[in-house]
Write a protein that binds this DNA or RNA. Structure first.
Lengths: 214, 214
DNA sequence: CGGAAAATTGAGTACTCTCAACCAGCGTGG
DNA sequence: CCACGCTGGTTGAGAGTACTCAATTTTCCG
């Protein structure tokens, strides 16, 4: 057994875990809470690129890339395990299983990114939000965090907007339309999916890209 | 030296090299020509997810993922080297340098996907197309395929539209607007970037995400 | 030279954005 | 204990970008 030196770090809501353009030194795994990756465009607007739940790597790419190409922020109070990149690389050299698990994590990460490209490029506001809600529900379920179709949902409407390429105002109206149609219920940080099949239909959601059970 | 059994395969324009939902058996490297990855949504519209030039892996993820989560098509007449996934995994186990090179390729691939998410989510039509043109110019230059700001450009307007999340009609009008402003010249499959700095400005292009020279 | 694919144009529509105001919940401090 | 300030959510009206549909021209190839 190889001992892997790691340190726990705790971040408050909205705190930056990594910043675009800065040199990288560690890789981090999310232990508790939620985090997201984002990039800012020249006029200051933000695009959220992915959400992460406990157990996922936030930045394995740091192993080989020396400067961060995006920002990482805590969504709520979150803690991570940070490992020096060289230690992780050594561990991966020594242990085939770990190497494979980490590579698999990053390959599935890519698959999710591809689906997000589709979501932003080819679905309207209702579809984009429906798809996002389905994805999060499915991932939380797979992780055993939520058992059914009701789960804690600490995203603000502005964050949903930044993840779906919409404005906060239009996100608000679109959520209302989903509520009015009896598809979801969302209040005080709690989401209930009332009609899973309909939401899947609207969001054109197919879980294949999540590669569960590989 | 480990011998790697591979076979060359040639594809005509628009031919499918891989189809979503089908089981995977090989990994392919593009030898000649151009290729792209895409996904189709339920109403049949297409979203292009990435473009690939000679020398790039088209589907390393097949090594660990048993079913394709997207389609791969040849953009023009293209040839690839196909390697059985298990052979590639064995080679990666044996050779640290190759393992590192392949992982690096897939990590940069992810970085490009992240930038595409930003492109689709937070830029308008002119910005999206400008960014795409800058990215292709920069990658071709880095690969030594094009020396300057003029290069062969076999994309149809429909393909540009599918890559930028626009319609073909709007893509046409947007290209005209870029031409009218003296930023580009595009005809008979040949693109000239007439004002690189202005195009970079419009597309909010920053080459960092391409991780050249890592 | 003919036919198909690609590019272009026009007119009307609709989705999403912008701006600006207003409301609700909540933690803090006087 | 209540006022205050802040964040997040909601609403309205008007503007604008991008879409749809359908026709037409141009280019590309066999």
């Amino acid at each position: 057994m190889v001992a892997l030196p790691w340190s726990k770090r705790v971040f408050n809501r909205d705190a930056y875990l990594a910043r675009e353009g800065e040199p990288t030194s560690v890789c981090t795994v999310l232990l508790n809470g939620l985090a997201f990756r984002q990039k800012l465009v020249s006029d200051g607007r933000r695009q959220i690129i992915s959400f992460h739940i406990a157990g996922e790597f936030l930045d394995v790419q740091n192993c080989l890339l020396d400067v961060a190409d995006h920002n990482v922020q805590a969504l709520n109070r979150a803690s991570v395990a940070a490992v020096h990149k060289s230690a992780l690389i050594d561990l991966m050299s020594a242990r085939v299983n770990i190497r494979r698990a980490i590579w698999l994590d990053s390959l599935i990460d890519s698959s999710v990114l591809r689906e997000w490209v589709v979501n932003l490029g080819r679905r309207d506001a209702r579809g984009r939000i429906a798809h996002l809600l389905c994805e999060l529900a499915d991932r939380l379920r797979a992780a055993g965090v939520a058992d059914g179709e009701t789960y804690d949902f600490p995203l603000t409407q502005e964050q949903i907007a930044d993840a779906t390429g919409l404005t906060a105002v239009h996100t608000n109206r679109t959520l209302q339309s989903l509520r009015k149609d009896g598809l979801i219920s969302l209040s005080s940080s709690r989401l209930a999916i009332l009609d899973w099949d309909a939401l899947v239909e609207i969001g054109d959601f197919n879980e294949r890209y999540l590669h569960h059970g590989v």
